[in-house]
Design a protein around this nucleic acid. Structure first.
Length: 490
DNA sequence: CGCATGATGCCTACGCATCATGCGGTGCAGTAGT
């Protein structure tokens, strides 16, 4: 296509996808990318984010490099593109057998879409090969991961900054996410080395999600509340919990009440995770009891209810999780079960794996004496993750500053949790205060707003009795499903 | 840190109090060993 002629996006859209019209928010993002601008697009999941990175390359030529946080997400997107008839697509990651990987590397230049992880990307031998490509633009998919994971969990997200900085002719970068917190936007622009990015940010307000805060005394009362309310009212929904064990416990209790539920957490086998996710998407599973491992890339339009059994570790996390309900625009509910002391557990888990400043000094000393950093990390009793994080900050800032940085990161985490405590313990409209944590205000005041505004959630929820037959028992289909879910086999 | 669970002490049977121990999220990559 001749680049001097303004691109006719409508005909391009028709030609590539067969669609006649863009969905709201897509076209402006696509135009910005084609103009060569660094672009940050905050669009709700389900708004068609993938088209935003898929279309411009057809006008520009070359390869799109898509950096994605999860292997499962890459696989999904590769499959989706292939289904659309795109042959020039590949994912470069550890999921590949050595043979397949060699093949992808040998044919790098032939792909129109190349997916990879930040960890793979920054490896020198891979990086060298990728930088030889004619890259039309780089996409950071689920870009809030930079902010959410980069600092203390997956530092290779932050290494992308230097990776981009070392490029001779850096292509434009497109960041896609559904999280609009100021910190996330700032981190994205900073670590993706963006120059005066075009921002397309949609409000995180979701008027069709009513909000509810229930104050309870502790774990036991929460369990009672859940069993009581979930036997009365229907999902489908997600219960977010603090630990893997709690996820299993609640799923078991619900199943014992003939409610079709399953756990989901990172301790499960990959196959089981896929099965549970698939059953939930297919409507064969009413409740998922999950740690924060569940959600990214899940696009189920009819999730009606999100319950938090624990205190989310940040406002961004909370908004993201409740935002998974009601994508179809229909009335949904988000319930936060809060008890005093939740914050202590949350703070412990969030900061537990971060090394103490003294540990950083110890490692610095060992390394200065010629010890291998892995050995030093082991002696200090650090987890692999913690060592990776420390080593990133030591490389970047030196031992002294890295030690200070550990304290700073822990403080940031505690502050984020404390903002959630203020949210849970404060008074006044929940919607206004939740959005306020992001610097937004409600767009409208919905009739069914929140428990502080007099919400009666029984006006939203659908009674379970409707799903029962005349004898008051569950239908045969639900009973059979509940048996299969327990065994986890198909 | 805070909670749940298990072990111990009591003193001779039972159940309660006290103490000790364990446990607690998110994923990539690459390697070892089945």
């Amino acid at each position: 296509m001749d680049m001097t002629i303004p691109v006719n996006l409508d005909s391009l859209l028709k030609q590539v996808t067969g669609f006649d019209e863009f969905r709201a928010g897509q076209e402006e993002v696509i135009r910005s990318v084609i103009r060569g601008r660094d672009t940050i697009a905050v669009l709700p999941t389900g708004a068609g984010k993938s088209l935003c990175y898929q279309l411009p390359v057809h006008a520009l030529g070359g390869t799109v490099l898509i950096v994605s946080p999860l292997l499962s997400l890459m696989e999904d997107q590769v499959a989706q593109l292939k289904m659309q008839g795109e042959k020039r697509v590949a994912a470069l990651n550890s999921f590949l057998a050595p043979k397949e990987r060699a093949e992808v590397l040998a044919n790098l230049g032939s792909y129109r879409f190349l997916f990879t992880s930040p960890e793979m990307l920054v490896q020198p031998h891979i990086s060298k090969r990728i930088k030889q490509l004619r890259i039309a633009y780089i996409v950071a998919d689920e870009a809030h991961c930079i902010s959410q994971w980069g600092f203390d969990f997956r530092p290779d997200y932050l290494r992308m900054r230097d990776w981009l900085g070392n490029m001779e002719d850096r292509p434009p970068v497109l960041a896609l996410t559904a999280t609009a917190s100021e910190k996330a936007i700032r981190d994205i622009a900073d670590y993706l080395l963006m120059e005066q990015p075009e921002l397309f940010i949609h409000t995180p307000d979701r008027p069709n999600i009513a909000m509810e805060l229930i104050r309870l005394s502790g774990r036991e009362e929460k369990t009672e509340w859940l069993l009581d309310h979930l036997s009365q009212w229907k999902g489908p929904g997600i219960i977010y919990v603090q630990s893997r064990k709690r996820a299993e416990e609640l799923a078991g209790l619900l199943r014992s009440r003939q409610i079709v539920a399953a756990a989901f957490h990172a301790g499960m086998e990959g196959e089981d995770r896929i099965l549970v996710q698939q059953q939930f998407l297919n409507g064969e599973l009413e409740w998922i009891c999950a740690t924060n491992a569940f959600g990214m890339g899940i696009n189920k339009p009819d999730i009606r209810w999100i319950v938090h059994d624990h205190l989310p570790s940040s406002a961004a996390q909370y908004i993201q999780e409740i935002g998974r309900s009601g994508r179809d625009g229909r009335q949904s509910l988000a319930t936060l079960l809060y008890s005093e002391g939740d914050a202590d557990t949350a703070a412990f888990i969030a900061t537990d794996d971060l090394p103490e400043p003294e540990t950083v000094h110890f490692i610095g000393k060992c390394v200065a004496e010629g010890m291998d950093i892995r050995e030093a990390g082991e002696r200090a009793g650090l987890s692999e993750t913690a060592l990776r994080v420390v080593s990133y900050w030591m490389d970047r800032l030196g031992t002294e500053q890295a030690a200070i940085q550990m304290d700073r990161l822990a403080d940031t985490k505690r502050e984020e949790i404390f903002s959630m405590v203020r949210f849970a313990e404060g008074a006044g409209c929940l919607r206004s205060r939740a959005l306020g944590l992001f610097g937004y205000s409600p767009t409208v005041r919905p009739a069914l707003c929140c428990s502080e505004c007099g919400l009666d959630s029984s006006r939203i929820l659908i009674g379970r009795t409707a799903a029962r037959n005349s004898s008051g028992l569950l239908g045969w289909r639900e009973r059979i499903n509940s048996l299969f879910v327990v065994s986890g086999e198909e």
